[in-house]
């Protein structure tokens, strides 16, 4: 399956592009995406994954062809 990943906020980006399509095994969950992108367990906990503005959980299944946003809030002010 293919998922397009977009980044928002002060998140460690594994590539310079704003978004990228990545290949995952069929039926992958959000947690699989985290490991595919090389995020550690601790990092993953602070990353919010949004599908069309709705937050997914680590156990949520991804949908083939969808576009999701990986987002970390900015804390400074």
């Amino acid at each position: 399956m293919k998922v397009t990943v977009e980044f928002m906020g002060p998140i460690r980006r594994p590539w310079p592009e704003q978004s990228k399509e990545i290949e995952l095994p069929d039926g992958s969950k959000v947690s699989a995406l985290f490991s595919e992108l090389g995020f550690t367990e601790v990092e993953s906990r602070s990353i919010n994954v949004l599908r069309d503005g709705l937050r997914l959980r680590p156990f949520s299944h991804l949908i083939d062809g969808e576009r999701i946003v990986l987002m970390v809030p900015a804390g400074g002010g």
Binding site: N48, G53, P73, A74, G76
Partner: peptide
Amino acid sequence: GVNGSLAMVAAFSGSGKPCFSCAFGEE
């Protein structure tokens, strides 16, 4: 919120839905 050169803004209406935690969790 800001970080480096980045600015981030989100608005939440008086209905409380969605709220900050809907988007950002509680972690």
